[in-house]
Amino acid sequence: MRAGKFRDTLALAERAWTVAEEIADPVGLSAAHRLLSTSHRLVGNQPEALSHLETWQPRPSHITDTSAFNAGRVPRIGRGRVLWLLGFPDQAVEAARKADEEAASVQSPVPVCIVTIWGANVFGWIGDWDTVEERADRLIAYASKYSLAPHVAVGHGMKGAVLINRGEIEPGVEIVTGVAGEAEGGSLRTLYRRVVSGLGRRPWSERPTG
């Protein structure tokens, strides 16, 4: 997945589904639904991605790994992104806010940071840059409290993207490139590039192109 070979990711997810079904393992089936949803979203099959998100019923009692980010603990994290792509911006915002609540209930700092970051994309896509900035400030403060330096760097990158989208191109680019090394060096390379480039890709449709 991190190498960008999403077709291979989808093939592995389908294999995981087959194995889980053969051994009738509910935890495996739940994980396969999540993998299939992510894989379909990444290759561009958005209806299938949403379908797997809708049918995926995570079993919190089986999710005991609290050491790092586990998407199984915040199952709505991808919903906002898929809903926006499918053309439901209002429902996407609602899903991003529900994911915030879900992450807060987990009471573990990494999921809170990741959900804050992913949700920012949805607000950027709808043009709500005040909320993106508020989320960046919240992320920086929260991640600093837990010494999560790469997540702090992502927060600064988000603020740089806000500046770019407000027309302050040079200072924005300086921030985005300046903190990239710190974010990427801390194993958040893929996340940083995807989130910040997604935010930085302003709605060019508002610009004259002729």
Binding site: W84, L85, L86, G87, P203, S205, T209, G210
Partner: peptide
């Protein structure tokens, strides 16, 4: 591609950009 992805939001962005281009032409 956006159509094949059923990505309506991306279709809107592209059709808007295309309309800008065609207005210029």
């Amino acid at each position: 591609l956006a159509r094949s992805h059923s990505a309506l939001s991306l279709q809107l962005r592209t059709t808007t950009s295309l309309a800008r281009l065609k207005i210029g032409q």
